[in-house]
């Protein structure tokens, strides 16, 4: 029996148990829904404000909901650091690309790829979202995010042919992910009731 300890499986279980609370799903959904609402309100910056304030709220939600139920764990940071490095590089490349594009457009010379992206913005959004979901899914070892990536493609790519407003698709995708996230959270809370013992192993009744 002892030789059957599968470290990869144990590592996967440690990651997935920490992210089965549905919190990341709810936050992703709220971000998409806030972007959709900001399109309707014609205040595109509104959605990005959510993105900025989400991190501390996410940390607080983990502390209040997850940690008292399954405990506290510091997962290895190698994957996260790789993702962060890639994100920084992509950010720098995006800024550089944006500057070059801006200069070209200002000089009356629209690049071909920009014209293509504007004319096919729905599939471009779908592929971008799918890529983002896949990267986060890889970092957190949350396989369901790969399913969300497929959902994004299935939602946005047909949108290129259906010609409904953009926020319709965002509301659809955001609502689906929100429902899944809430379902996961309810299952998580039922499966892991608050422990009668605190993280030191001492009973809360003894206090």
């Amino acid at each position: 029996m002892n030789e059957k300890i599968n470290l990869k499986e144990i590592e996967r279980k440690a990651y997935t148990s920490y992210h089965q609370d549905g919190i990341i799903d709810i936050f992703i959904a709220l971000f998409i829904l806030s972007l959709a609402a900001s399109i309707i309100a014609d205040m595109i910056w509104l959605g990005w404000i959510f993105f900025i304030i989400a991190a501390p709220i996410y940390a607080t939600a983990k502390r209040i909901i997850t940690v008292p139920r399954i405990g506290f764990v510091k997962l290895p940071q190698q994957r996260i650091k790789i993702i962060q490095t890639i994100a920084v590089l992509l950010g720098v490349l995006s800024v550089a690309l944006g500057l070059v594009t801006f200069i070209q457009v200002e000089s009356g010379n629209k690049p071909t790829w920009l014209v293509f992206a504007i004319e096919n913005y729905m599939p471009v959004i779908g592929v971008s979202l799918a890529t983002a979901f896949s990267v986060v899914g890889y970092a957190l070892r949350a396989k369901r995010l790969y399913a969300y990536a497929m959902l994004a493609l299935v939602t946005f790519v047909p949108g290129h042919f259906l010609h409904f407003p953009l926020h319709y698709y965002m509301f659809l995708l955001g609502t689906l992910i929100l429902l899944l996230g809430l379902t996961m959270m309810i299952r998580f809370v039922r499966r892991y009731p608050l422990s009668a013992t605190d993280t030191t192993g001492a009973s809360n009744n003894e206090r």
Partner: peptide
């Protein structure tokens, strides 16, 4: 094995796992 694959964990996490 669990402590080998994480940086650190508390009692409750180990008990659940």
């Amino acid at each position: 094995a669990y402590l080998f694959v994480v940086e650190s964990a508390d009692f409750l996490f180990l008990q659940r796992q």
